[in-house]
């Protein structure tokens, strides 16, 4: 509701302010679509800024899914705006002519091109062979161009924005998201620079995973909920776009000593194995709503695929430290036996708490005693207890697994509010 109201504000400011002679329906619709597009795209800066007051309760991955959907909508509005205006009145072709007003025309071209590039580079980043860091830099720069260019264009159109008060209100309104972008890129890294961490261990683990241990350097560390994740920066300075999200595997009971498990999925995660002990690092966060309330006494079922087991390890370790005694189940699915991440730790947890583990392999070795195949409804029926209101389900894994497990759990009667899942395919 708040989001909708904020998005509509630019439109309402201009409509309630200066009221010029009405034009035909197509032109007025085009004008409103343009103003709506400006509101939608300006709010995109707020949505994606990892502001805890906005994304805290919703979960960052959900917010980014929404950001993605709404971004495409904003782009369609940007395209529909000139199209409607021109169809309604061909005289608006003058807006595209630099001789009639070069700044107005250039800002229009800029917004059209930059927003199209923004969408294409996000939807097909991998197809373009664009590295994640470069994509982040380009995404931020294009977003800034689109919103400032869009604001400039709206002010120069001078129809609804004829009055000075309207201009000032619109400028102020769009200025706030622009300032928030500065907060994200400058003030936040500066705050992080005041709370450095030191890499204390870098260990190779099964499944090509690297375990990275960090120690708080001169501060009390970071309070987090088990299952949450942080954005990690390693190296010289926190003022860099080399920032990547990873789940904690350490228990929340040790805020000054954080462990991350990193699988080589991109350029940065491939290079983590070469990081030297003693290297400085910075953490931004914690983020995420994928967490267990260890004190609730509720039973928990964890269903993990591959690296998706990491947040669950943090939850289980925290439960152990806090002496929880409610029964728990962990279904840990992997392709091969050699890829089972933290197997020793997981098996040792089962000895010390009321935890039942089900290892599932797609490609089992001869003599394998665990489950085989993909996690589906029949397997869940076999390995899990009957569903009950006091059981929460946590699911984290690759998208195809999530797409099959979530409906399978729903088919078993699991209510949506007891099904907590996390997806990591952000871009």
């Amino acid at each position: 509701m708040v989001y909708t109201a904020l998005v509509l504000t630019p439109m309402l400011i201009v409509v309630l302010g200066h009221r010029p002679e009405p034009r035909n329906l197509l032109v007025e619709s085009g004008a409103m679509l343009g103003l709506l597009g400006l509101g939608v795209l300006a709010m995109q800066l707020v949505i994606s800024g990892r502001h805890r007051w906005f994304a805290g309760k919703l979960g960052l991955d959900n917010v980014l899914q929404y950001h993605r959907q709404v971004g495409i909508f904003g782009w369609l509005l940007v395209l529909a705006h000139p199209l409607c205006m021109l169809l309604g009145n061909p005289e608006y072709l003058a807006f595209l002519d630099p001789r009639e007003g070069w700044l107005r025309a250039i800002s229009l071209y800029l917004v059209l091109l930059a927003s199209t590039a923004l969408i294409l580079t996000s939807l097909w980043r991998e197809r373009f062979g664009l590295q994640y860091e470069w994509w982040r830099a380009i995404h931020a720069a294009l977003a800034l161009l689109v919103v400032t260019g869009g604001l400039g264009h709206a002010l120069m159109a001078d129809h609804y924005t004829g009055g000075w008060l309207t201009k000032a209100l619109l400028g102020g309104l769009i200025g706030v998201p622009l300032l928030l972008l500065l907060e994200t890129r400058l003030i936040r890294p500066w705050r992080m620079s005041q709370r450095p961490w030191k890499v204390t261990a870098v260990e190779p683990r099964a499944g090509d995973v690297t375990r990275l241990a960090l120690q708080a350097d001169g501060h009390a560390g970071m309070q987090f909920l088990p299952g949450q994740f942080v954005w990690l920066t390693v190296g010289e300075t926190p003022f860099t776009l080399q920032q990547h999200p990873f789940s904690m595997t350490s228990p929340a009971t040790e805020p000054d000593r954080i462990e991350l498990a990193i699988k080589p999925l991109g350029d940065f995660s491939r290079s983590v194995a070469d990081v030297a002990c003693g290297t400085q690092a910075w953490l931004e966060g914690p983020y995420g709503t994928f967490s267990i309330d260890a004190s609730s006494g509720r039973r928990a079922v964890f269903i993990a695929g591959g690296i998706g087991v990491t947040p669950m390890i943090s939850m289980l370790r925290t439960c152990l430290d806090r002496g929880c005694d409610q029964p728990m189940w962990l279904v840990d699915a992997n392709n091969k036996e050699s890829e089972i991440i933290f197997r020793d730790e997981i098996d040792s947890l089962a000895q010390r708490m009321s935890l039942q583990i089900v290892h599932v392999l797609v490609d089992p070795p001869p003599g394998w005693h665990g489950e085989t195949g993909y996690v589906d409804e029949a397997m869940l029926e076999k390995v899990l207890p009957p569903d009950a209101d006091d059981i929460d389900y946590f699911v984290c894994g690759p998208p195809p697994m999530m797409d099959s497990v979530e409906p399978a759990l729903r088919a078993r009667g699991v209510a949506a509010n007891r099904l907590i899942s996390e997806r990591f395919e952000l871009v």
Binding site: Y3, M32, R68
Partner: peptide, 30 residues
């Protein structure tokens, strides 16, 4: 599950916003 709701929320927001924008345009034309 939540990501499906997040996507749905995006689509619903788009439809509502579009309806408001076109409604306002209609009112402006009179």
């Amino acid at each position: 599950m939540q990501h499906i709701y997040a996507r749905r929320a995006g689509i619903i927001a788009a439809i509502v916003l579009l309806a408001v924008a076109l409604g306002v345009a209609r009112v402006l034309v009179g």
